Amino acid sequence: MTTHIVFGLSSGASVKFALKLLNDEQVVVMVDDLMWGPLGNVLLEDIQELRFQWWGQVLTDEDILEDIPYLRESYKKFSEWTTALKDNDSLLFWIGDNPSEYTGLMCLLSYLPQSISVSVVMASNAYYKRYGKFKPRFMGEITADKILPLLEDSKILSPRVRERYKWNWMQLVEDSGNLRILKNRQIVTVSEDYFDEQFVTRAKKISKEKMYRKSDGFFPAARLVGDVIGHQKQMFMDVVIEWRIRCLIQMGLLSYQGSLKNMRLYSIKPVVD
């Protein structure tokens, strides 16, 4: 039986809908975003706990109450699936050009049984080759009706390629960082504040827009979150962008009005030197 592995809830929903007619195949979704946070063998409970603690520092109190229990339950189901794997099973990964899905692929290749056959659909390139015009960054940007034909582009990973991915993964683990990006077709570790300067630059541009003159340049924090998601080549979760906004406020680079309990409850503007 072939199991399709997808990273992220939106991507999982799209692939499940697209493959619902393939009765002998299942879709497994890894919810956790390994672009961010400490790394290790996420199939082990102590590494999962390490990641829960990190997410607890990133999420707002409101999000913690819902997201951490959900993440715990998703890991429990994922671990149960890995325990039930058999040597004659085969895996098919759906991977876009982004650090989240690449890092997830490398992690699972490093810790799942090597006897299991692994194939990959490099979805960004496969989509662009087939449909043109638009090159999606991740699976969640591909509509369900266009997913099934991409199966024709699936390729079995050779032992050499699998070893290369595993080497990249071990390098990331040794780096002991909390942020990974895709650079020159390689996943590399960078500092947590790697994108902060870009966030401040975008905030300055938004603050000068005509519609925010009456509010002295203050604009909704959610506006910057959406702006970053729309302009960044790297894929971002909104909760992580909002966390970095709160970090920039703590560093005195942004000022705010309102409550920091939720991104929709406060406005921000850059602090002018």
Rank of each mutant, 00 (worst) to 15 (best):
E192I: 15
A222Q: 14
F219N: 00
V28P: 12
N262T: 11
L22F: 06
S176E: 12
T60K: 00
K77H: 13
I116N: 03
Y165C: 13
L157C: 02
E197T: 11
M237L: 12
I249L: 01
I206T: 03
V58F: 00
K155M: 06
M30L: 15
G230Q: 15
V58Y: 00
N98T: 11
L39K: 08
D32L: 03
S110D: 07
I147D: 04
R246S: 01
W167G: 15
V120I: 11
L19D: 02
N23K: 13
C247H: 11
D32K: 04
W55T: 07
F195Q: 07
Q232G: 04
D196P: 13
W167A: 15
V31H: 11
L265G: 11
P270S: 02
S90C: 06
E163M: 13
Y256T: 04
M251F: 08
I116D: 04
F219C: 01
L50D: 09
S255N: 09
V27T: 15
K16Q: 14
C107W: 11
V188Q: 01
T2Q: 05
L44K: 15
W94R: 11
N178M: 14
S124A: 06
L248K: 00
P220M: 03
A221T: 08
M211R: 13
F195Y: 07
Y128L: 15
T189E: 10
S267D: 00
V190Q: 05
Y111D: 05
C247A: 09
V225E: 10
I268V: 06
M211W: 05
K210H: 05
G177R: 10
L19M: 06
K86Q: 10
D87H: 14
P136K: 00
Q53E: 12
T201W: 05
R213A: 12
T3D: 08
R246W: 00
V6A: 02
D238S: 13
L44S: 07
D97P: 06
S10A: 13
K129I: 08
S14E: 12
R213F: 11
Y194R: 02
A126Y: 02
G140Q: 06
D97E: 14
Q186C: 13
E66S: 12
K135M: 10
L172C: 13
I156T: 06
Y111E: 03
K133G: 04
A18S: 12
A126H: 02
I245L: 03
C247R: 12
D32H: 05
Q250E: 13
I187V: 15
Y194M: 06
K129M: 11
W54G: 10
S255E: 13
E101Y: 04
S158E: 08
V190K: 05
D196A: 02
M35W: 05
